[in-house]
């Protein structure tokens, strides 16, 4: 189902066959059931998970062990570590942006208010 899946390995048993749908930046993709978001993204060749709010440096995985938090993504609206969080069927995932500026500006846009007025939410 993707060129990055290892279908045959000399030692390891073949991967599970059951797949579930999810989306990444709105693009429909499939994951294996019980697979982490990080592995599901790698299986589709997605190795850049976000751009850092401070200097826009591209971010990918580092520890894949729940220790470093470099692989944060948004899954159904919540920030999660892509290497630890399993794909939930139908989950909408997207790059994490921790920037308070962009979040505020998003809200402003939603509220349709001008730059200087306060957003009620």
């Amino acid at each position: 189902m993707s060129e990055y899946r290892i279908e045959r390995h000399p030692i390891l048993p073949p991967p599970a066959s059951e797949t579930i749908p999810f989306t990444w930046k709105g693009r429909p993709l499939t994951a294996k059931r019980g697979e982490t978001i990080a592995s599901a993204l790698f299986a589709h060749g997605e190795r850049i998970f976000s751009y850092h709010f401070k200097d826009h440096a591209p971010q990918g995985i580092f520890c894949a062990n729940g220790q470093c938090a470099q692989c944060l993504v948004l899954a159904d609206g919540l920030p999660v570590k892509a290497c630890m969080e399993l794909v939930r069927p139908g989950a909408a995932s997207s790059p994490w942006t921790a920037s308070p500026i962009s979040r505020r500006s998003r809200r402003r846009r939603r509220c349709g208010r001008s730059r200087r007025s306060k957003c009620p939410s």
């Binding site: 990918g60 995985i61 894949a64």
Partner: peptide
């Protein structure tokens, strides 16, 4: 971790991380 120029570029990661994605999840990373 280790410090060198470009040390956080996507594609730089731990050997254990690699084994996790390749051997646990059978994804050619």
């Amino acid at each position: 971790s280790l410090t060198f120029r470009g040390n956080t570029l996507p594609g730089v990661y731990g050997a254990g991380a690699f084994q996790t994605i390749v051997n646990r999840d059978l994804v050619r990373s």
